[in-house]
Design a protein around this nucleic acid. Structure first.
Length: 394
DNA sequence: TCTGGGGTCCTAGGACCC
DNA sequence: TCTGGGGTCCTAGGACCC
């Protein structure tokens, strides 16, 4: 058999139905049953096994629709600790093959194996070895795309699913890409796909054969040239070895959809306080502070607005973030508007030690910062439920 | 009982500064 | 004497990805 992987040194490895597979592997009773991971009465599908997918269940689908599509499915809640543990082991296995591993999320990574071929064999051999190891050690399956560029490897792994390997050698890139639907391209979502379809562009080949200027007029200069490049397989991106969580965050936020829409200011602001405490706590454990506070409000009709305020100095103080978010909410001047979701985000994060607050931090703020540190210590010892603002206790 | 939660990046207008 | 041009910051919204 000819090994077509010559000239292809990039592997994209994607776990098959990752969350569902992890939840199922210790539950022999669920093996031949459609399984949906998700929950919450207003939630969406996080992952579904292939039996559930046969009934049309997809990731990100509203749970209500998923249950209707597949009433016999078993619905289970996600166990993020388990996902994270499995993910770390899998990534460690990858790093035994090559140091150049770029984790994209818990369940997918790119590997540059060019330095491992002499030692371990062709990229296809390496891919099959990794698949066998992960199957043995973790009892889940994965799929691998192999190509000379990142974007093609990613598309190839999608075609390999489930539990397979697809190689796209350089001379087959355009014949591989051009029949694909435009939505397969990185950066094409629902809206851009609609836009392209209005131009009569349905396949990647259609995009490739459209003049760059036309494309740019339709979807903007940046995205236009990106799509044109990707449609021809022009992707010079190289990998940066890194763990998924390694990059310093540029922003941190939290939001929450209410179980029922509400127009009760007190209820909404209590949630804003809880979110501010959650976000600032995460910021303090990451030792970062930020200047711009953004409040997000989604109404019953799903329209979403944001209001932001940039402070003179970066902060990680719960009370300061909460107070800013509350002012932003009140400045909306809502009158009995039904609110579905609120969110608080802090942007422009910098390492906390670079922030010099002595000049601006008055006595009051200083004592709030001290209070936060006490809360953090108690949380570390007794857990998140131990200490919380009085208005969150009921 | 349609539509989560965590993020990133881009665009565009206005303010402001030089 | 009818009006510069570039750069950066701030704000709001939107699209996208996992």
């Amino acid at each position: 058999m000819t090994d077509l992987s010559a000239g292809c040194h990039l592997l994209h490895i994607d776990m098959d139905a990752f969350y569902a597979s992890v939840m199922i592997r210790d539950r022999p009773d669920l093996v031949d049953i459609p399984v949906i991971v998700g929950g919450g009465h207003r939630g969406v599908v996080l992952s579904a096994n292939y039996l559930a997918r046969e009934h049309g269940v997809r990731s990100a689908m509203p749970m209500t629709r998923a249950r209707r599509a597949c009433p016999q499915a078993v619905v289970i809640s996600p166990d993020y600790d388990a996902f994270s543990t499995v993910s770390s082991s899998v990534m460690e296995t990858f790093r035994q093959v090559t140091p150049v591993v770029e984790a994209m999320s818990l369940d997918e990574a790119f590997l540059d194996v060019s330095g491992s071929i002499r030692r371990l064999g062709s990229p296809v051999t390496i891919a099959e070895m990794l698949r066998a190891r992960i199957h043995d050690e973790q009892r889940i399956t994965c799929s691998v795309g192999i190509a000379a560029s990142v974007s093609v490897a990613k598309l190839a792994s999608r075609r390999a699913k489930p539990d397979g390997v697809v190689v796209v050698p350089p001379h087959r890139v355009t014949s591989f890409l051009h029949p694909l639907d435009v939505v397969e391209l990185w950066g094409v979502g629902e809206k851009t796909a609609e836009m392209l379809q209005r131009l009569g562009l349905h396949t990647v080949g259609d995009v490739a054969n459209t003049p760059l200027r036309t494309l740019q007029r339709a979807v903007g200069a940046g995205l236009g040239s990106q799509l044109h490049d990707l449609a021809w397989g022009n992707d010079r991106r190289t990998l940066t070895p890194r763990r998924h969580t390694q990059e310093p965050d540029k922003s941190m936020g939290a939001d929450e959809t209410f179980a029922h829409d509400t127009d009760d200011r007190a209820v909404i602001l209590r949630e804003v306080l809880r979110l501010a405490a959650k976000v600032s706590g995460r910021m303090r454990s990451a030792r970062v502070a930020g200047r711009t506070i953004t409040l997000r409000v989604r109404f019953a009709d799903f329209t979403t607005i944001t209001r932001s305020k940039t402070l003179p100095e970066a902060t990680d103080v719960t009370q300061e973030i909460h107070r800013t978010a509350t002012r932003l909410f009140d400045s909306l001047g809502l009158q009995r508007a039904r609110v579905r979701l609120v969110g608080v985000r802090v942007e422009g994060l910098v390492p906390r030690h670079t922030v010099h607050r002595q000049l601006v931090l008055g006595e009051r703020e200083r004592s709030w910062a001290e209070a936060d540190r006490a809360v953090d210590r108690a949380t570390r010892r007794f857990g998140t439920a131990a200490v919380r603002p009085a208005s969150l206790i009921n």
